[in-house]
Structure formats: C-alpha cells, structure tokens
Simulated assay, not measured.
Amino acid sequence: MNIAVLSGKGGTGKTTVSTNLALALKSNYIDCDVEEPNGFLFLKPEIKETQKVMVEYPSIDDNKCISCGACVTACQFNALAKVKEDIILFQKLCHGCGACEIVCKYGAITYKKREIGKIEKGTTRNISCSRGVLNISEPMAVPVIRQLHAKLTGEINLIDCPPGTSCNVVNSLKYADAAILVTEPSEFGLHDLKMAVELVKMYDIPFGIVINKDDGKANIIKKYCKEEKINLMGVIPYRRETAILYSKGEILYDDSKHKDLFDKLSKEVKEVLSWN
C-alpha cells in the first residue's frame, strides 16, 4: 500500500509526520520532495546505493542543419529558438519529447543524455529509505520523482510529497492508494488545505487529515473537517518540547510522549484508510 503524505503549503509539518509515522508503521520511507529532501536529516539512514537520474536533450549537427526552423515550430516548450541563421537550444527547458528530431528532414538532430539529479537509498531502524535529490539550478523535478516511484517495493510505502499542489505533487500521487493531508490551524493552512483536498478528490484517493501545532481548542480546521465530513485522523499538540526536538534534528518517535502519539496515529491511519 502506497500512502502519500502531502500538504497544501510548506511548513505545516509534513516531513515530521512522514518520518515519524514511517517508524510507527514500520514502512518504507520515500522522500519525493526532491528540491528540499529533508527526511534523511531526521532518519539518518546509512546510504548504500546511489543512482544517477538522466534526461535526454537534442544535439544539433551544424554540418547538417540548414536553420529551416522546423524544429523550433515543433517544440511546445520553447526549448529551441531561431536567432538570425542559428538554432539556439535552451537545454533545461527541453522535455525530451522527440518532436524536433521527428520533424527534422535533414537528420541534423540526435539525442544525448545529461544528469539532473540522483536517487539515494539506505536503511535505518530496520526500514528502507529512499530519496530523490534534484541538482541545483535544475528547473524540472518530475523526472527524478518518476524514477523514484519506479523503484517502489514492499508492503507499505510512505511517500513524503513536495508541498503545494503543483505537477510535482501530482506525479508523487500517481501511485498512491491513500493520502494523509497535514495542515496547521491558520487561515493560510485552511486555504491551501482546501486545494490539496480538491486534488486528492480529483484522483479519487481516500484521505484523512492531521493537524499539526494544535492547541487543543476549537479551530477553523476542525470546523472545516466537521462541515465537509472529512476524517480527522489525529493532532500533534503545540508544545515547546516538540519544537526543541525538531530544531535539533531528532526523531520525535524516540520520545515516549511522542511515540504514544504516533502509535495512536498509525492505528487511526489503518482504520480510516482502506487498509489491505
């Protein structure tokens, strides 16, 4: 079973929930937040395997190219441009679709590969951990996320998604059987939570909500869950000791109070989601 953990916005505690819940469920942990993969800072796995993520890009043979511009017209991503009599390639805009090579009548275009990131795998506390890491200055994270998903194994995979509701999140949700939406009791939290809810509903993914930084009082998130009949699976209290542990890069699950909290949450997850 693949469980995606996502949030409508950054800073809600998505990675905190993901890493600690992975230990409570004894599941594999997969960090798809490839632009800021922070999960390993807490789980500290021993990395045993590293794989390069490669993408294709067009290479133009100047001896064959007559600068007709057919490739520029065919490119839907503005990765090619005709400047006077030259064809200019913007390498990082290329999606590797192959259209330019198909329309070139002179055989001037072939494809090469370049590295945009890597996949790292390791183990810690008897669980398997994987993460994607996008190279600095690379604009497209989706190829890294796709390669990370291609390696999913095991009975339970906890997928730590990127924040927001962008195409990176959509690709992280591609193989999800269920979802946990992490939010905070604020107007911004509610606003972005609603977008995340619409996203998982669009793909008909069973889901529940976890509130982080909860003060134990009535708030707008609890009201929203009640009105929309959404399962509120649990809350993480707003405590000073929680912030201290987190700021030190320590796992909350090692603390007895927090262990009980995440063990309870793991049971609730099994009950709320279609567990099989």
Rank of each mutant, 00 (worst) to 15 (best):
A4S: 09
L6I: 10
S7V: 03
K9C: 07
G10I: 00
G11N: 09
G13Q: 00
K14D: 07
T16W: 00
V17F: 03
N20I: 00
A22P: 07
L23M: 02
K26V: 03
N28P: 12
I30C: 05
D31F: 09
D31M: 05
E35F: 10
F42Y: 11
K44H: 09
E46R: 02
I47E: 10
Q51H: 15
V53C: 04
V53M: 01
M54E: 15
D61T: 08
D62S: 15
N63E: 14
S67F: 00
A70T: 08
C71Y: 02
V72R: 05
Q76E: 11
F77D: 07
A81I: 05
K82G: 00
K82S: 03
V83I: 13
E85F: 13
K92N: 11
I102K: 07
C104P: 01
Y106G: 14
K113W: 11
E115K: 14
I116M: 08
K118T: 09
E120A: 10
K121A: 10
T123E: 11
S128Q: 15
S130H: 10
S130A: 10
G132K: 00
V133Y: 06
S137I: 13
P139W: 02
M140I: 14
A141E: 10
V142S: 01
I145W: 13
I145Q: 01
R146M: 13
A150L: 14
K151H: 14
T153Y: 00
G154E: 04
E155K: 11
N168S: 13
V169C: 05
V169I: 03
V170I: 15
V170P: 04
S172C: 05
S172Q: 09
K174H: 09
K174R: 14
Y175F: 11
A176I: 06
A179C: 01
I180V: 07
V182Q: 00
V182K: 02
P185M: 08
G189F: 06
H191I: 05
D192C: 03
A196N: 07
Y203G: 08
I211M: 07
D215T: 10
I220C: 09
Y224S: 07
E227F: 01
E227L: 08
I230T: 02
L232A: 00
I236T: 08
Y238N: 12
G249I: 04
E250N: 13
I251A: 06
Y253K: 00
Y253H: 05
S256W: 02
H258E: 11
H258I: 12
K259A: 01
D260Q: 15
L265V: 09
V269P: 10
E271D: 09
